[in-house]
């Protein structure tokens, strides 16, 4: 998987490494901005109210 990505990145090793870092940062950003805020309320830490449910 990662080997396949590495082989398909353009440029020499340094360019590939740079693009990889950018890709990793992009993935972390998407996770923190969109995926985790969606997933976190599914965990029980938000249930602080008394209600009929």
């Amino acid at each position: 998987m990662y080997g396949w990505i590495w082989r398909h990145l353009p440029g020499n090793a340094w360019v590939k490494a740079l693009i990889s870092v950018v890709l990793v940062l992009a993935v972390v950003y998407v996770l923190f901005q969109y995926v985790f805020p969606w997933a976190e309320p599914l965990l029980p830490f938000n249930d602080v109210t008394v209600d009929g449910q």
């Binding site: 972390v28 996770l31 923190f32 985790f36 997933a39 976190e40 965990l43 830490f45």
Partner: peptide, 14 residues
């Protein structure tokens, strides 16, 4: 790595 990142999110980033 995803789990570690999620723990960081819950414990620190929130």
């Amino acid at each position: 790595a995803l789990i570690v990142l999620f723990v960081v999110y819950v414990l620190y980033w929130t």
